[in-house]
Nucleic acid binder design. Structure first.
Lengths: 362, 362
DNA sequence: CTGTTAGCGCCTTCAA
DNA sequence: TTGAAGGCGCTAACAG
């Protein structure tokens, strides 16, 4: 037994499919009140559910919005996804999910899949990368996106534009001031801290990571500090853990050592909270304590991690709002009375949040 | 400029649309090698992307799988979502996401929306509830699901069956042994603990919560312990926090008090990790320490929370696998050579994991 | 092995 | 206001 169709409803109500269609959807012209009622009754007596595929085919628009993330279980992406989902719900659209692990090749695939499903818009939340190994894939991704836009699709990217995209129409970027905020964080830390700084960063070429590193270094420079050493590692908890082990070894060596300058307490900046937590875990595992033996700060202010102790200093990012903004940027319904012609989403703002993990301790 | 169609490709290749279709998809019959090549070239010279909506309409099947969760930003659901997404990817299907906050009315809506999109299957991950206030909505949800199944849809529910569902075909349940595991946890704790137990539970009527409470009580009984008091609160972090405050007050009162039995150290069981973390935060905020002043255990073993200190005793649940199993249960492709006719997914297994938060301390 | 002919379910001109 | 006809892009039966 298949789902009942509009034609069946029409027949039962004794009208033409066209009329039934007009009743059951917000068509421009309104049918007679009496007839409308008959149709509606027929519809739910049959448990009629419109076939969105057919509707989509006919109107060529699907009410679908595609969301691309690295990993939906990563709280950073999960938070953004929540924002996207919320906004989509308000716009009465549905979210299609794709996870790519950050590989541009898979992102390209995802875009193609969304295009195939005729998604009205696509939100890309994962960080862009400029690693040379990804160059070709990035080019293909850009091409795929261009095509998608040229066919009328709307794209919003969180953070950085996709490398090599050439189309401008329908292409939006939700700018995240990673660099400025990292700079502000560095400034704050430098002002209450006279030890050395170390940065735990993601792989070279990851924009988000690179921006935060650059900003932090600038902040240090402005404060008259020398640039911090940068440890490159994976952009996740285990990367943070590895780097943490490395640092723990150094700290211990410096401590038991000959009392050189290296014995000054280290302030660690991990380019995201999850990495910072990993690093903290490693330090702890090596018997070091925060903020006693070293201090540490992260970035993002992930909600789930706020109960950690010592509380993690970080930069608060309105992740949910970012998701919402990205979605909204792609969702302008035609014919708004607004004067502003769908201006780009205002740059989001973050906030340096110092907590216990970077407190100076006697 | 609209996306190019199969017909255009066919024309360019000088063949009929049917032939083009046969080449470009894994049709049963294989066209001539030479002709196939021509079609393929035409296709990607035009940047052809098949219209999934049209394909779906023609084949009445969409390659879509609907996922319903309470909140995608909750790490519990995020983990399950990852499993679903992984499996879907392997099956070359896409995931449609819906979040409902746990309200049966919204779940019903989501099911209807999935049905409209002709999703091949639906995975429901949120806990069922039997609260009387939800009775009507639950009934409607059940009816909607029944209809969906009758129309050939596949449904998998994590945990408990939906209340009132009457159809059996296409209807799968991934059983989670909440009760048994909670019992095992209670047994372990009781064997190394002689203080009082308290349970922080979700609202009355939430199956997952109720099962875990019941199991824990049984475990206590088997160990010859009196039943624990149950505090009802919201099924999330802030619920845990509230209950934690309440308990903190009691502990402090008992401590400074007249040295009655109430001074025995309390062992708290929160029915999920997130609540346990909330409760811990409250205790800490009130100046109490774990496991010194009270001990606490949770349930789920959420990955992101594993770095908390003191490490949280809990019951490990293979969340990702649960998502995968649910998806697989709905995804049997026709014509497998398997002998087993799509048996229900084997019950998942969890594991009691005792860590520092329940350690006895001098 | 290829091409032709019908739809899949709906929307949207057009004419009545 | 309502109905009839055509098409959205593709697949699945038929014929050749």
């Amino acid at each position: 037994m298949a789902a009942s169709t509009l034609t069946e409803v029409a027949r039962l109500a004794g009208v033409s499919p066209a009329t039934a269609s007009r009743v059951l959807n917000g068509s421009a012209r309104k049918p007679g009140k009496d007839i409308a009622e008959r149709v509606r009754q027929a519809a739910d007596s049959l448990g009629y559910i419109p076939n969105a595929q057919a509707q989509g085919l006919a109107k060529s628009s699907s009410g679908l919005i595609g969301l691309i993330v690295h990993d939906i279980a990563d709280p950073y992406f999960a938070a953004i996804a929540r924002g996207v989902q919320d906004e989509a719900r308000e716009q009465r659209r549905m979210v299609l999910l794709a996870t790519t692990g950050g590989a541009p090749a898979e992102e390209r695939e995802a875009v193609a899949a969304f295009a195939a499903r005729r998604a009205d818009s696509i939100v890309i939340a994962g960080s862009r990368s400029s690693r040379t190994e990804d160059r070709d894939d990035n080019a293909e991704l850009a091409a795929e996106l261009d095509r998608y836009c040229r066919n009328g699709g709307q794209v919003a990217v969180v953070g950085h534009p996709v490398v090599g995209a050439t189309v401008t129409e329908g292409y939006h970027v939700v700018a995240v001031p990673n660099q400025e905020l990292a700079g502000a964080l560095a400034a704050e830390l430098a002002s209450r801290w006279d030890g050395d700084f170390v940065i735990i960063g993601g792989p070279d070429g990851l924009f988000t990571s690179d921006d935060r590193i650059r900003g932090f270094q600038e902040g240090l420079a402005t404060a008259g500090r020398p640039p911090a050493e940068v440890l490159r590692t994976a952009f996740n908890r285990s990367g943070g853990y590895d780097a943490g082990l490395e640092l723990a070894a150094r700290i211990k060596a410096g401590r038991s050592g000959d009392g050189e300058a290296s014995a000054r307490k280290l302030c660690i900046f991990a380019v995201n909270d999850v990495m910072a937590i990993g690093a903290s875990a490693a330090l702890r595992a090596e018997g070091l304590r925060i903020p006693r033996d070293a201090t540490i700060a992260g970035f993002d202010d992930i909600e789930t991690l706020r109960d950690f102790r010592p509380a993690l200093s970080t930069v608060r990012l309105p992740l949910e709002e970012i998701g919402r903004l990205a979605t909204r940027a792609t969702g302008r319904t035609a014919g708004g009375s607004e004067d502003l012609d769908d201006g780009e989403p205002g740059p989001v703002s973050g906030e340096v949040t110092l907590r216990r993990s970077t407190e100076a301790v006697a």
